[in-house]
């Protein structure tokens, strides 16, 4: 069965979706990702959907789920590279993806994640978050 590869880069997990997801593949991705977040105690998840031409309500729900589940495991999710047509369609469909962070591209998404981890680290315990990043 097809699987979408999940890459680990420092404290982050990277997922690049290159194909249009069908339902089962999306569900597998959700399960795999949450597993990986827990296993690697990742602080952030970047999902690149720049190659995805359709996001329907099911896919939107999966993305929302991934974000909420990761949040519980203390990781932020950033969706990057959404196509204009997909963004317009999602809004019209009634899915503004609340609670999901977005960025224009991988680089900006990465910066966003870094800044989020930095500030959340400042709030709680600076040493710990610095430690987390340096040990990865």
């Amino acid at each position: 069965m097809d699987k979408i590869p999940i890459l680990r880069m420092g404290p982050f997990l990277l997922v690049t979706i290159q194909v249009d997801l069908y339902d089962r593949l999306a569900l597998t991705l959700e399960a795999d990702l949450v597993q990986m977040v827990q296993k690697t105690s990742a602080r952030g998840v970047l999902i690149d959907i720049s190659a995805v031409s359709i996001v329907d309500s099911f896919m939107g729900r999966i993305i929302g789920n991934i974000a909420s589940m990761s949040k519980i495991l203390d990781a932020e999710t950033v969706v990057v590279g959404m196509q204009p047509a997909v963004a317009i369609t999602l809004i019209e469909l009634g899915l503004p993806l609340k609670g999901v962070y977005t960025a224009l591209n991988m680089e900006k998404g990465m910066n966003l994640l870094k800044s989020m981890i930095d500030t959340s680290g400042d709030d709680e315990d600076t040493d710990l978050s610095d430690d987390d990043i340096s040990t990865e």
Partner: peptide, 17 residues
């Protein structure tokens, strides 16, 4: 147009599901 294509395909996707 691309945006309308996306709308149509998304709608089709919903209905097929």
């Amino acid at each position: 147009g691309l945006v309308n294509q996306t709308r149509l395909l998304t709608a089709a996707s919903e209905l097929v599901r």
